[in-house]
């Protein structure tokens, strides 16, 4: 079979009948591709991080003075703000991936580049978040007394250090697994496409 001999048949025969699809109705539908799904996830994360501190605030309304002077509460607010900023950064990165009208090769390279960068920052961000909470747990008792931390601080420092090390090791594997599940497969697919382009 010679490809060139089939060109005319290809152009004529496409089992094609005009679809009569309402194009304008189609564009009203929400897009649900992988990029749109990622954007949705980051939006959800931002909303959640706004709602959670408000929820804590609302449930402690009777003892508001205690909440407002709590180091843990304000640390939690700082953490939520950092997550919101990080999610917004991710949201913007993913937004840049939505442009589909560039040349295929450069579009693929851009998407791979942005996702790799996001993956790196994701891992760094998670590590910082964990470090922040570890420091917090160790430092807070010097400023305020929390009954829930008493038992923890009664343990030998080496035991606590071991637990933190275990936590960091666990985070290393869990965050990798989670990232892989969230968008790692998509990244691998895009990298494979770039390879196909370069082959």
């Amino acid at each position: 079979m010679e490809l060139d001999d089939l060109k005319n048949t290809w152009k004529k025969n496409q089992d094609y009948t005009s679809t009569n699809i309402n194009i304008m109705e189609l564009i009203q539908n929400k897009h649900y591709g992988p990029v749109a799904a990622l954007k949705k996830a980051f939006k959800k994360q931002m909303r959640l991080m706004i709602i959670l501190p408000l929820l804590i605030f609302a449930t402690s309304i009777n003892d508001i003075g205690k909440v407002l002077t709590s180091v843990l509460f304000w640390s939690y607010i700082a953490f939520c703000l950092a997550v919101i900023m990080f999610s917004f950064y991710n949201y913007r990165i993913v937004g840049r991936m939505e442009g589909m009208d560039g040349m295929v090769k450069s579009n693929l390279e851009l998407q791979v580049n942005l996702l790799q960068k996001r993956l790196q920052w994701n891992i760094i961000g998670l590590r910082f978040a964990l470090l922040f909470f570890v420091i917090l747990i160790e430092v807070v008792p010097y400023f305020q007394h929390y009954r829930m931390l008493d038992k923890w601080h009664a343990l030998h420092p080496l035991v606590r250090l071991g637990a933190y090390a275990a936590l960091f090791t666990l985070q290393y594997f869990v965050s990798r697994k989670l990232s892989q599940r969230k968008f790692g497969n998509h990244l691998m697919h895009l990298e494979e496409l770039v390879k196909q382009m370069q082959a």
């Binding site: 649900y32 591709g33 992988p34 990029v35 799904a37 589909m100 009208d101 560039g102 040349m103 295929v104 579009n107 693929l108 998407q111 497969n185 998509h186 697919h189 895009l190 496409l193």
Partner: peptide, 21 residues
């Protein structure tokens, strides 16, 4: 030409959304 770009980009980057491609 422009439409081919959008169509091919969408087709090759977006097909993994529901199930394994």
């Amino acid at each position: 030409t422009w439409l081919y770009r959008v169509a091919i980009n969408t087709a090759i980057t977006g097909l993994r959304r529901k199930k394994d491609f």
